[in-house]
């Protein structure tokens, strides 16, 4: 038992004692077209519970489309998606959210007119049961619910170290903090799977280090499965358990970071080859 745990720790490059579990999401032969444009062609890969799964590839490779397929914004024309072994029927984003899939966006998609606190509170939306009439009265049930969820939100705020900006409208925050608030909003939903679309784009080294630490901590402490799109290869190779490589909507590599790094197709896609 002891040895087994040790082995697991050793095998996970990123964090502490998390155990990589069963396949949670299985994508089979996904093809996605917009009119004549093929965004994704016949892509299959799986995501295991508690792992950090990265998707990399040059610009326009279909990485973000892949995330949009996973959380139901796009509907692939072909292929099948199994979530915990169940095939998915027609999917809307809010259903994905109900299944515990949260995400952040490549271009920050915060609610600009609201404070940090309100933004993060929206992450609790699915867990709140009160209706409009309770809210109209506010006192009583709605207030108790609000306080109960506020406690959870404050935990997330503490976790991401953004206590001081709680009441600030997000529009006034610098870019790096906005990215962090977006992560907070996704975490407030207590997701089982977190999709991160370039969480470190445009950040300086220090902010990147912070973000890496948060991602690893989330993965480690809450056991959240993480699907990461990122262009910083140093980060990807450091923290991922497995990496999928896309190019022109096709999968050209899949495996642990070391294997992918040495895959000739991947090297060709990133660096080009001499013909």
């Amino acid at each position: 038992m002891m040895m087994n745990d040790m082995a697991n720790v050793a095998s996970s490059t990123g964090g502490g004692g998390r155990r990589i579990g069963e396949v949670i999401l299985d994508l089979k032969n996904i093809s996605l077209r917009f009119g004549g444009v093929k965004a994704l062609t016949d892509i299959s890969f799986d995501i295991r519970e508690h792992e950090i799964r990265s998707i990399i590839g040059p610009n326009g490779a279909g990485k973000s489309s892949m995330l949009n397929v996973i959380n139901g914004v796009y509907h692939p024309q072909e292929g099948q998606i199994l979530f915990r072994g169940e095939p998915r029927q027609k999917m809307e984003p809010h259903m994905a959210a109900a299944q515990g899939i949260a995400r952040t966006f490549q271009n920050i998609a915060l609610f600009k007119g609201m404070t940090v606190l309100d933004n993060i509170m929206t992450g609790r939306n699915l867990k709140m049961k009160c209706n409009l009439f309770h809210h109209a009265l506010f006192f009583g049930k709605a207030q108790r619910e609000e306080i109960e969820h506020r406690k959870k939100v404050e935990e997330v705020i503490d976790f991401l170290e953004i206590q001081s900006i709680r009441k600030t409208p997000v529009g006034r925050l610098p870019y790096g903090l906005q990215k962090r608030v977006e992560l907070a909003r996704a975490l407030a939903a207590e997701p089982t799977m977190l999709l991160l679309d370039e969480p470190m784009a445009g950040m300086n080294v220090e902010e990147k280090q912070d973000m890496c630490r948060f991602i690893l901590d989330v993965n480690d402490q809450f056991g959240t499965t993480i699907v990461l799109i990122e262009h910083d290869m140093g980060v990807v190779m450091d923290i991922s358990d497995r990496v999928v490589v896309l190019d022109y909507g096709k999968k050209i590599g899949d495996g642990p970071p070391d294997e992918v790094k040495n895959n000739p197709d991947v090297i060709a896609a990133y660096l080009g080859t001499s013909h």
Partner: peptide, 27 residues
């Protein structure tokens, strides 16, 4: 009361960024 509660937050979320609102479970 409405605008400072979940109802109001979901209205403002839809106003500010409807795709993101949908993705976190607001219909």
């Amino acid at each position: 009361n409405l605008v400072r509660s979940t109802t109001g937050r979901s209205w403002m979320a839809v106003r500010d960024m409807d795709v993101a609102a949908e993705v976190i479970g607001i219909r």
